[in-house]
């Protein structure tokens, strides 16, 4: 730690640093600069009239107070939380069950596994449109089936009913994310040494017991990266909502990234849109450093 950054040590490892220089430049230009630019944007009154000229006046934290006092921000934040909790937990749970299922050797397992992955490989525009059709209130298949079985008598407006719309987009996003969870967990499981399971079964541990005492603890690194990426990914969901509900009805299915888009590109309040991005950034950064801290510990 002490020598880090000193001229001598840099010179010493100059060669090695040259190797990472291209990647470093790439990160600075395409990541660090936009992030910093976004920070500066969030403390300026950047709007239509000064966007092109670029000389937005500095307004300090005014944008922050404006955004935080907006009731739609609170709604979007609460929605975000609901969305994230459901997506994370159910994507993980279903992904885990599917991974356990495909971890068993049976005829056609590879086939079916590949099929499950299709959902993840589809562009969101396709998954989103498909869900929009499936869940349509007038002629959606889901409503048709539910009515045929006799569970409901009149169609449910999955996408146009406040309170339900958010859960419909959440469900679609869970479907999109499950295969990714499954494939990582499955890869993790398949890398676990069989001997441990053999030893456990000799010691009399059943399937359930060995799952909780062997599989889960050994999968911890995989699980923690999955959850981390789940959080980050849920902050990137925009297209799905844009396609399925446009954040409606009456903004009831808006989450933070969508709200940020609305501010920036619908209302042209670029400064306030940037505030939302900054808040998201901070939130994710907290989780990211927590995650790094955790993996660091494990590495030592």
């Amino acid at each position: 730690m002490k020598k880090y950054g000193s001229y001598k040590s840099i010179k010493k490892s100059m060669n090695e640093y040259t190797f990472i220089l291209p990647a470093f430049l790439f990160l600075v230009i395409f990541i660090l600069y936009p992030v910093l630019y976004n920070f500066t944007l969030s403390v300026k009154d950047a709007n239509l009239s000064n966007f092109v000229s670029g000389n937005a006046p500095f307004t300090g934290l005014e944008n922050y107070t404006k955004v935080i006092s907006d009731p739609y921000f609170k709604q979007a934040a609460v929605n975000m939380l609901i969305f994230m909790v459901f997506c994370l937990s159910l994507q993980f749970l279903i992904g885990m069950l599917l991974a356990l299922f495909f971890n068993m050797q049976f005829a056609g397992a590879k086939w079916m596994r590949a099929l499950v992955l299709v959902g993840w490989m589809n562009p969101v525009i396709i998954s989103g449109s498909t869900f929009k059709w499936l869940l349509s209130g007038d002629n959606g298949v889901v409503n048709y089936l539910l009515m045929k079985i006799g569970l409901i008598h009149s169609p449910i407006a999955f996408l146009t009913q406040p309170g339900i719309a958010l859960f419909s987009v959440t469900a679609a996003n869970i479907w999109v994310g499950v295969p990714f969870n499954m494939i990582l967990l499955l890869a993790g499981m398949q890398s676990l040494p069989l001997e441990i399971y053999e030893a456990a079964s000799i010691d009399g541990a059943g399937k359930i017991k060995s799952f909780f005492t062997i599989t889960l603890p050994l999968l911890k690194p995989t699980i923690s990266i999955l959850l981390m990426m789940g959080i980050i990914n849920s902050f990137k969901v925009f297209d799905l909502i844009y396609i399925m509900t446009k954040g409606g009805p009456a903004r009831s299915s808006q989450i933070l990234p969508y709200y940020s888009y609305e501010l920036s590109f619908q209302s042209y309040k670029f400064g306030e849109g940037a505030v939302v991005s900054v808040l998201i950034f901070i939130f994710v950064m907290v989780f990211a450093s927590f995650y790094l801290h955790m993996t660091q510990k494990e590495g030592d």
């Binding site: 090695e16 990472i20 990647a23 470093f24 990160l27 395409f30 990541i31 660090l32 600069y33 936009p34 992030v35 630019y37 976004n38 944007l41 981390m228 990426m229 980050i232 902050f235 990137k236 990234p257 940020s260 888009y261 920036s264 590109f265 670029f270 849109g273 940037a274 991005s277 998201i280 950034f281 994710v284 950064m285 990211a288 450093s289 995650y291 790094l292 993996t295 660091q296 590495g299």
Partner: peptide, 22 residues
């Protein structure tokens, strides 16, 4: 070095979030 790399990688994960404003 590993730490530097992992910090860079971590920020790499965060990229898409802010792309909208660049």
């Amino acid at each position: 070095k590993k730490r530097v790399v992992s910090v860079l990688l971590a920020s790499c994960l965060l990229t898409g979030l802010l792309a909208g404003c660049s």
